[in-house]
Amino acid sequence: MEGYQRPCDEVGFNADEAHNIVKECVDGVLGGNDYNENNINQWTASIVEQSITHLVKLGKAYKYIVTCAVVQRSPYGFHTASSCFWDTTSDGTCTIRWENRTMNCIVNVFAVAIVL
C-alpha cells in the first residue's frame, strides 16, 4: 500500500477544474440555442446530469450537489446566494455563470468530502 494516498490528503476541492468541466457541459447543451420553453426542462436536466457524470469521472471521494437555474434574459431581476456549514479544509464550491443572447444560466457545484 505504498502508493495509496488518502483522498483527503488533497488540498481541498479544486474549484477551477470543476469550473472548466461544468462550463464545457453548459456549452455543449446550451451553446448555439435560443431560449425555448419546450426544451428548457430537458436542457436543465441535461446540464446537471452531464455535470455530475463528468465530476464523478475525476475519481475523487466527494459527494456532489449540482444546481442549475436557467433564466430567460429580460429586464427583471434574479438573485441567488448560498451558505454552507462544512469542513473548509476538504469541501468546496464553485459557481458558473453562462449567458448568451436570450438566456442566463447559473450552475452551482458543491463538493462534500466523504471520509476523513
Binding site: 431560449y35 426542462n41 446537471v48 464523478v56 444546481t67 427583471y76 441567488t80
Partner: peptide
C-alpha cells in the same frame, strides 16, 4: 454538513427553470 441555497426572482414576463441533481447516499442525505 449543510448547504443552503436561496433564489429570489422577480415575477413578471420571464421564464425561469431551476433544477438540481446530487451524488450522495440516499439513506442518509
Amino acid at each position: 454538513k449543510l448547504i443552503v441555497i436561496v433564489y429570489i426572482g422577480q415575477r413578471d414576463d420571464q421564464s425561469i427553470v431551476i433544477g438540481s441533481r446530487c451524488l450522495w447516499n440516499p439513506k442518509s442525505d
